Computed example of a mutant assay.
Amino acid sequence: MLPPVLTLFTAAPLAAGLTIAAVMGRWWRSVFVVAAIVAVILEIGSIFTLTIPADFDTGSTLALSLCHIAMAPVTVIALFALRGRRRSQVQKASDG
């Protein structure tokens, strides 16, 4: 089980963002590309706006920063997986 803080600050925003992108993707397919760009900017930007100013010790700052960096490819892969799934659903609908 994930610690509550990790869930609150990592899993919840990721799930919310992916849900919003999935819903918007029904009408605007490009949302997945836009969401990927925005997600990476927010994930990397949060290092400079939240992690470093928090004044943790060096090891904690480095570990938390690496967690933010690791979330970027996870988010992009998830968004493009949603995009590919949406594309295959649209193609099946037009074929059938």
Rank of each mutant, 00 (worst) to 15 (best):
V31A: 00
W28P: 00
G25R: 01
A16P: 01
G17S: 07
L42E: 09
V33W: 14
V34N: 03
I52F: 15
A35P: 07
G25F: 06
A22L: 08
L42G: 04
I52Q: 12
I41K: 10
I37T: 07
L50W: 12
V31Y: 04
S30F: 06
R26Y: 02
L50D: 14
A36K: 08
A35M: 00
I52L: 15
G25W: 08
A22K: 02
T51N: 14
I41A: 15
I37C: 12
V34K: 08
W28H: 03
V34W: 14
V38K: 11
V33L: 12
I37S: 09
A39V: 00
R29G: 06
V33D: 10
L18H: 05
M24V: 06
A21P: 03
W28R: 06
G45T: 09
A15V: 10
G45L: 09
V34Y: 09
A15F: 11
S30V: 00
A22C: 06
I20L: 14
V23S: 06
L18G: 04
L50H: 13
V23M: 04
I44E: 08
I52D: 12
I47W: 11
L42R: 10
R29S: 08
V38S: 04
W27D: 01
A35C: 04
I47Q: 09
V34L: 11
V33E: 11
V23A: 10
G17V: 01
P53A: 13
S46H: 14
L42T: 05
T51Q: 13
V40T: 07
I44L: 15
A36S: 13
I44P: 03
V40P: 07
V23L: 14
V38H: 11
G25L: 03
V38Y: 11
I37D: 03
R26E: 08
S30D: 03
G45Y: 15
F32M: 00
T19G: 15
A22V: 01
G17E: 02
A39H: 13
I41D: 11
M24D: 02
R29V: 04
T51E: 15
A22W: 13
W27T: 01
F48C: 01
I44M: 10
V23E: 03
V40D: 14
L42S: 08
I44G: 04
I44A: 14
M24L: 11
E43A: 05
V33C: 02
V38W: 07
A35I: 00
V23C: 06
W28D: 02
A39E: 09
T49P: 05
A35N: 02
W27M: 02
